[in-house]
Simulated scan of single mutants.
Amino acid sequence: MIEVRDLSREFTIRKRVGVVRRTSVVKRAVHDLSFEIDAGEMVGYIGPNGAGKSTTIKMLTGILVPSGGSAIVAGLEPARQRRELARRIGVVFGQRTSLWWDLPLRDSFELLRRIYRIPDQTFQRNLDDHVALLDLGDLMDTPVRQLSLGQRMRGDIAAALLHDPEILYLDEPTIGLDVISKGRLREFLRALNHERGTTLMLTTHDLQDIEALCDRVIVIDHGTAVFDGPLSSLRLNGDASRTLVVDLVDEAPAISVEGAQVVKVEGPRQWLSFPAGASAAPLVAQVAAAYDVADLSIHEPAIEDVIRTLYGG
């Protein structure tokens, strides 16, 4: 559905040198970027600020023209076939809106129906479905400027899906949302992908969104991909470690077993760190055989820590 080959984008920045003189500096926002996304995938596209995430999305939607390489989306070249592509994709930028500020939500949807020339039956079906799933029924006659951020975001997502796009790009869709709004939005996106097979590409700094929605992650840094694979494999990257939490019947000295190291002791509870790629079974067997154990639990490495290590490298 999306095929990117050696994609690059450069910007020329004019800087003042001295009082009058100016000089030009070329900044590479994206370079040598390659990946493929199949139909129906939900992919997290993450990276630090300035890594090139939004620039990539803008090239994939045809807003920006690549400086080099190629991008094919739904069989179309975004920059050359932008109009045809617009009918097949939906885009939500968390800090921008596609709704009309002074119009009621209902009128914004009606305008989009005419812009996309959506057949009446398709429009009404999608509108009814999305309004119900996103809980927008009581807001349809409210001007967009009077909606809260969470309500507006739900309206933007409904607007992006009215024309049945095959691909949905989400750029920071949960920015500023409360816990309830985030949960409702995630449930909707999962249902959309499951029931309609919509391909989702999600950029966000909220890694809970990635864990809740995406099985695959592409990590971009300094304009190029530094990781592309399953979320489970990302946890094994670098020096990530898992933690075995052991509750002993009574307090005891630090547990000594092969393949793990005690990192914390609080009364009868002890925390043992071991490599993320190692099996926990031998470790659990050693502890159970040598100590009186009341309870055991295993904590996976925090995705935030893994990403932080990856960026630092």
Results as ranks from 00 to 15, higher is better:
H130W: 14
A160G: 01
L149H: 05
T142N: 01
T122R: 12
L127R: 11
D164F: 09
L177R: 01
R87T: 12
A191W: 13
G75R: 10
A74S: 15
R196Y: 14
S148R: 09
L207E: 09
D156N: 15
L189Q: 10
D120T: 13
V91D: 00
R106D: 08
L149K: 08
A132N: 12
G197K: 11
E195C: 08
R113C: 00
L170Q: 07
A160Q: 00
W100E: 11
M201G: 01
Q208I: 13
G137L: 08
R184G: 13
L76N: 02
L185Y: 03
E84W: 04
L111A: 09
R80M: 13
Q81F: 05
E77D: 14
L170E: 05
D128P: 00
S181W: 06
F93C: 07
G68K: 12
R117P: 03
V73C: 05
G94I: 07
I157N: 00
L207R: 06
Y116C: 01
A71T: 08
D141T: 09
R83S: 12
L185W: 02
E195Q: 15
D138I: 09
L147T: 06
L127N: 01
G75K: 08
E110D: 13
D156G: 01
L99E: 04
L170D: 04
Q81N: 12
D102E: 14
V131D: 00
M201N: 04
R82K: 14
G155L: 10
D129R: 13
R184M: 14
Q81K: 13
I118T: 04
Q146I: 00
R184T: 10
T174R: 00
R154L: 12
D135N: 14
A159E: 01
D156C: 08
N126I: 04
D156Q: 03
L185V: 08
Q95I: 10
G69T: 10
N193I: 10
L168K: 05
L112G: 03
G150K: 05
L85D: 02
Q81W: 08
L134Y: 05
G183M: 12
L162I: 00
L189A: 11
L127I: 08
L133Q: 15
F188C: 10
W100S: 09
N193G: 10
D107P: 04
R186D: 07
E172M: 06
V92L: 03
H130N: 13
L136Q: 01
V179P: 03
I180R: 14
L147P: 04
L127K: 07
S70D: 13
V92P: 00
